[in-house]
């Protein structure tokens, strides 16, 4: 990997996960963004990790079976006001 002017590739990789998670402080974020703008290898890795997160996110939604949806409907109908 190439060397960046402010942080190295190794340092960039240690910051990457927190960057993608929106957890980096401003100074570190700026350093990393500068590095990603000039290092194709780290930029590619950042894009891959971002894509991987995008593919995971839909796993948080699952269509209920008709039987389970009916179970919830029936339960709510029995709730007393």
């Amino acid at each position: 990997m190439s060397n960046a002017s402010i942080i190295t590739c190794e340092e960039a990789l240690t910051l990457l996960a927190e960057y993608l998670d929106g957890e980096l402080e401003h100074a570190d974020r700026s350093s990393l963004e500068h590095h990603l703008a000039i290092c194709r290898a780290c930029y590619s890795r950042a894009e891959f990790e971002r894509l991987l997160r995008e593919r995971l996110a839909p796993l948080g939604s699952e269509p209920p079976t008709p039987a389970f949806a009916q179970r919830i409907r029936s339960m709510i109908e029995r709730f007393s006001l």
Binding site: G60, S61, P63, P64, F68, A69, R73, I76, E77, F79
Partner: peptide
């Protein structure tokens, strides 16, 4: 307090996301 229909509609619209999260 008195709006079971609102509660039911919103729970049912959230059901896929609740179930997906619970599944994981």
């Amino acid at each position: 307090l008195d709006d079971r229909d609102w509660f039911a509609n919103h729970v049912l619209s959230l059901l896929p996301d609740l179930l997906g999260t619970a599944r994981r």
